[in-house]
Amino acid sequence: MIEVKNIKKTFGDKTIIDDVSVKMDSGKCNLIIGSSGSGKTVFMKCLVGLFVPDAGEILYHEHDFIQMNVQEKKEIRKQIGMLFQGSALFDSLTVEKNIMFPLNMFTNDSYRQKLKRVNEVLDRVNLEGANKKFPAELSGGMKKRVGIARAIVLNPQYLFCDEPNSGLDPLTSLVIDRLIKEITLEYKITTVVNTHDMNSVMEIGDHIIYMHQGLKEWEGTNKEIIFSKNDKLNEFIFASEFLKDAKDMRMLEMSGKIDNDRDMDDIMNNDAPFAIE
């Protein structure tokens, strides 16, 4: 579990994160959503220790990460896996060496044991046999999967994913989302995903935090987000007319005002916007 208490981060005189508090449970996909510049990447970088917050606490199982000494932070970092937006694979190393890297750094296992573990995680992300390929030979989706494999090779307690779907087609995005969800449940880890992809939100969002201009604007589940009354959140989610119409349609459906295909056809053929009375 990760608990964030009143963190604040400023760059110069610009406040990027302003008094954000949130609790992220184990075995759940915690999604941080928000438009570009809302502070979600800075928030995630604060969580993993790449930025030091100006104020507040970040508790990993009730231990404040900010107050930890170098050795304690190192121990926590061994329990953190992270998938980067661009995958951040080491270009000069093969897939096998990339995934083996954390094992070389933090374990005294024999090469055979390490190779066994590498093959296990490669199987887990459905990339068996890709050991000897270099990152340049992989597609975007494969790179993400190698990134996930590297992130989970040390059996982490916490998994952070920064924009896991950026640059991927909708189908591959879905594969990555489901993989993240499965791994979260399988390893019972605390997963934090930074995204602005609404498909991901609906697919894996057990717990969603919406950020706007550095503030936590809304918090809830993927079931609640559609019916949220928060104007800023609705503006973000239903950015297009099509999505607004889709929402209205869903509301009508839920309220029983339209309930069959015939009504739907009428609405579609009418070619007129509809609204909830």
Partner: peptide
């Protein structure tokens, strides 16, 4: 730029 240094730092290196 490709966040490889960040990846190493997060690993505790």
């Amino acid at each position: 730029v490709s966040e490889q240094i960040d990846a190493l730092e997060i690993m505790g290196i």
